[in-house]
Design a protein around this nucleic acid. Structure first.
Length: 765
DNA sequence: TAGTTGGGTTTTTTT
DNA sequence: AACCCAACTA
């Protein structure tokens, strides 16, 4: 009995075909990670390949970590030396060694999106770019796309001939690269592009790595961009033992430069490639797969395949419709709670997936009210939060004064009376002498333009940093961070402030300290530089542990590669998912990418899938009325437990019937001031209008706003009330919340509940 | 220089 | 709704 016996025929083929280029088309849940890990085990245990010669590349640290763990379980010895990492960390490792050959210092820093934006702001000022016409974001997006395609500033400029906008971007790109180099910094895209550049210009370095990596495997191959493909192609040119695993149906990162042609044209680049298809799914029920297949079938330009399972039909797919997003959130929370109560699942078996991060908020509020433990993945990256970035800027400054951005970030945090004018003068001086901002600070006395009082304010800052540096000789990173917090009074200031989320920020700082402690425990000789590097490449999803006690809330993008027994897809509305942008786009590829995202979402479910639709939803401050997502309509009726058209709506108002397909529409309207409910006690209550679409799309809006959520409810504490679902009860508490009155009711049968007055629809009895 | 306020803006997804 | 920024005031 060997470890390979449990694999199916196709999987075995993937494991045993180790020579030459191999393309494994692996449908969702078809066991691709098993194939990759067993393949590595086979190379080491059966073919006697040294782990040193194997490289496996994934996209997230989480995926890399899991793969590494599973390989370790399969092979006894020799798994430590395998490179199982992400594209970005692979490149950092290479560049840390050879960046000097590209004119950078080997201790370069890595800029995140925030840093990029600060740099670009200064550049726009300097180049007199009107940011009303051409936004920093757009320029950075253009630069990022260029780097994904390995286009240099020079090439970009050549391409920009005759196009004013592109010429401006070209200028900015050129300047941006110059600033980064001056600051000894690279951005995320540089990590890949500069490594490719290194390989192309330095035969010795490339040769080293080609000789080392005799077997290369790439996971999630459909998400590679041109630069990443080139990196892999160069590395694999030595041995040509390149195995890529992917699923063109799960390509969802076009906006990040992913080039779907990499997988569709693999056989053209490598004509001798062997193609292996994994179509048997081990994850989901047949109903889930049928739904996924039915949706993805509507895409053109894919490598056709059909997932199947021998697990049986399973539950029907649940389809639930709601009047608004609050009710959707309420249902999901209630349903999760019910399942937990009935013992069907642990909280950790549930995930709620949505298209946009903003949708998390309502769900979160509801989960808090119901007391369900949850984690939100994504949104703002932990290390991008203000308080964390501030403290990291201290660490960066202490580690390497060349990072001007970090120095400027903290020079006046806490307030030291150093303002924009002083900073500008110091910068001028630094530019003139061609020294770093920090070095200019050290020579504050020499800066003539600075007054006595200004330069006197700079000195204590320099002394502070110097003292941290010298103390670092004697104490560890944990002591350092605590010292910084103490000396600067950062946390104390937060505690004293009446900022609303001060408590939360302090918690984050505590978490940062724990991370530093953990880092020091794991590493034998922990250095500040290494810590900062590790932190720079952490994605939010990496922090998620396989915890059975918390429901996960995340975007569909973040969910790729994960699985849950019970999955809720929230916000299944045309205009939300697929997003409004892709609906109005004239590029049909965009809607296909959204459909792939739907396919990813559906196939995350192992046993149970619930699709939720909310008729009304607040988006960016305006209430939208949306039709049921076209992706739901693509699922055969018999797979759903609840059918279109929606029972709660007037059929002629909602273009949702399959038999009467109507072009997707997004209805928008702005609340008219006169229609707003009189806001007496509490401000900021949501404006939610009832009524049919007909009334809203027509000129006579007034009729549409009859069922409005108003001020204080007509019942009070102590009153007896009746709820549609929970029956009768007594009002225990009634308080104005941020959105609406929160009412606590002790129901005779259902127990105590906290709910929003507007949606509880309690009737006084 | 620091703090406040009002106006304008917002691709949706992220290593 | 939430965020960012410029302009204004103390």
């Amino acid at each position: 009995m060997s470890i390979y016996d449990t694999l199916n025929e196709q999987q075995k083929k993937g494991v045993f075909t180790t020579k030459g280029p191999v393309l494994i088309l692996a449908g969702a849940g078809s066991g691709k990670t098993r194939v990759l890990t067993h393949r590595i085990a086979y190379l080491i245990d059966e073919l006697g390949v040294n782990g040193w010669n194997i490289m496996a590349i994934t996209f997230t640290n989480k995926a890399a970590g899991e793969m590494k763990e599973r390989v370790e379980q399969l092979v006894g010895m020799g798994s430590e030396s395998i490179w199982v990492t992400t594209f970005h960390s692979t490149c950092v490792r290479i560049l840390r060694r050879y960046a000097d050959r590209l004119g950078y210092d080997n201790n370069f820093t890595i800029y995140d999106t925030d840093d990029q934006k600060s740099v670009m702001k200064e550049i726009c000022k300097k180049l007199l770019i009107d940011t009303k016409m051409l936004k920093e974001r757009s320029i950075l997006a253009a630069i990022s796309s260029a780097k994904d395609e390995l286009i240099t500033p020079q090439e970009y400029a050549l391409n920009a001939m005759g196009d004013f906008r592109k010429q401006k971007i070209a200028q900015a790109y050129q300047e941006y690269q110059a600033v980064l180099k001056k600051n000894n910094a690279v951005d995320f895209d540089d990590l890949i592009m500069q490594t490719v550049e290194l390989f192309k210009t330095d035969a010795e370095v490339l040769g080293n790595y080609q000789r080392r990596f005799k077997y290369i495997m790439v996971d999630e191959y459909q998400d590679t961009n041109t630069a990443q493909f080139e990196l892999i192609r160069l590395l694999a040119d030595g041995s040509r033992n390149l195995c890529v695993v992917g699923d063109d149906d799960q390509s969802i990162y076009k906006f990040r430069g992913a080039n779907i042609r990499n997988i569709l044209d693999f056989e053209k680049v490598y004509p001798e490639a062997q193609v292996i298809r994994l179509e048997q799914n081990y994850r989901s029920t047949q109903n889930v797969l049928d739904a996924a297949n039915a949706v993805i079938r509507n895409n053109k330009g894919r490598k056709s395949k059909t997932l199947w399972t021998d697990q049986g039909k399973g539950n029907q797919i649940h389809f639930r419709q709601f009047d608004n997003a609050y009710e959707e959130a309420e249902f999901i929370a209630d349903d999760v709670k019910r399942k937990k109560r009935e013992g069907t699942i642990d909280y950790g078996g549930c995930a709620v997936l949505y298209r946009t991060n903003a949708q998390a908020r309502l769900l979160e509020e509801r989960f808090v009210v119901e007391g369900i433990p949850y984690d939100v993945v994504g949104g703002i990256n932990f290390y991008a939060r203000r308080e964390i970035k501030d403290l990291l800027a201290y660490l960066k400054t202490i580690d390497n004064g060349r990072d001007d951005l970090a120095v400027k970030r903290i020079i006046n945090i806490p307030k030291r009376g150093i303002g924009a004018a002083t900073i500008a003068k110091v910068q001028d001086y630094a530019d003139m002498r061609e020294i770093s901002f920090y070095d200019a600070l050290r020579q504050a006395d020499e800066i003539i333009s600075l007054g006595k009082s200004a330069s006197a304010k700079l000195k204590p800052f320099v002394t502070l940093i110097q003292s941290f540096r010298s103390k670092l000789e004697f104490y560890g990173l944990e002591d350092l961070i605590k010292d910084i917090i103490e000396t600067t009074g950062y946390v104390a200031e937060l505690e004293a402030s009446n900022e609303e989320d001060a408590e939360n920020r302090i918690e984050n700082i505590d978490e940062l300290i724990s991370k530093i402690v953990a880092f020091e425990e794991i590493h034998d000789q922990p250095t500040l530089g290494e810590f900062l590097e590790e932190v720079a490449l952490v994605a939010d999803i990496d922090r998620v542990e396989n915890d059975s006690s918390r429901v996960l809330l995340m975007t569909l993008h973040s969910a790729k590669g994960l699985e849950f027994s019970h999955v809720y897809l929230a916000g299944m509305e045309d205009g939300i998912f697929p997003s409004y942008m892709t609906i109005v786009s004239d590029d049909p590829d965009e809607i296909e990418e959204e459909r792939r995202l739907a396919y990813v979402g559906i196939t995350r479910a192992k046993e149970d899938l619930t699709l939720c639709y909310a008729k009304m939803r607040m988006v960016r401050g305006e209430t939208q009325l949306n039709a049921v997502s076209r992706f739901i309509k693509e699922i055969p009726d018999e797979l759903l437990d609840n059918h279109l058209p929606a029972p709660k709506m007037n059929p002629q108002d909602i273009p949702s019937s399959k038999f009467n397909p109507v072009e997707s529409q997004v209805y928008r309207y702005k609340p008219v001031a006169a229609l707003k409910p009189k806001q007496t006690a509490a401000e900021n209550k949501p404006f939610i209008a009832g009524g049919g679409l007909g009334a809203l799309s027509a000129a006579g809006i007034s009729k549409g706003a009859s069922a409005v959520v108003g001020g204080k409810p007509d019942y009070d504490i102590g009153d007896r009330v009746k709820h549609v679902k929970y029956g009768e009860g007594t009002v225990l508490d009634l308080e104005p919340g941020t959105r609406d009155y929160k009412v606590t009711v002790d129901f005779d049968d259902a127990g105590q509940k906290i709910m929003y007055a507007a949606f509880a629809k309690l009737v006084k009895i």
